[in-house]
Amino acid sequence: MELLVASAIGLLTSSGLYLVLRLRTFPVIMGISLLTYAVNVFLFASGRLVVGAPPILQDGVSGYTDPLPQALVLTAIVISFGMTAVVVMIALGAYLGSNNDKVDDPVSAQKIDVEEVE
């Protein structure tokens, strides 16, 4: 079971990274989403895997799942929505503004001379 979870995390990470290394915005966003899953599951797994334990406090039960990573991951999931939305908006704005959804800037666009700054 641990092997399955670990391999799932590994697979999500590598697929996410592969997509992040693509040249267009949309696959990069997909890749970031996959990485988010991987990170969330990894954080969750840091509470170790427990099957069938009660998540709610009950009388006469001593073994519970670890609530702390769950609380952390819960907010992480919600924040990741906000992050995805912002990134998508930026990608969209860039595409609509320049009709181009490449992630790499050409070097020539960055050249600013000191004289111009003055």
Binding site: S7, S14, L17
Partner: peptide, 24 residues
Amino acid sequence: RDVFIAAIAGISTMGLSLHYLLRD
């Protein structure tokens, strides 16, 4: 090259997770 980089990172994460999961 990208597959290679991604695979290395994936395998490392998997190793790390497994290591983590098998220890208190």
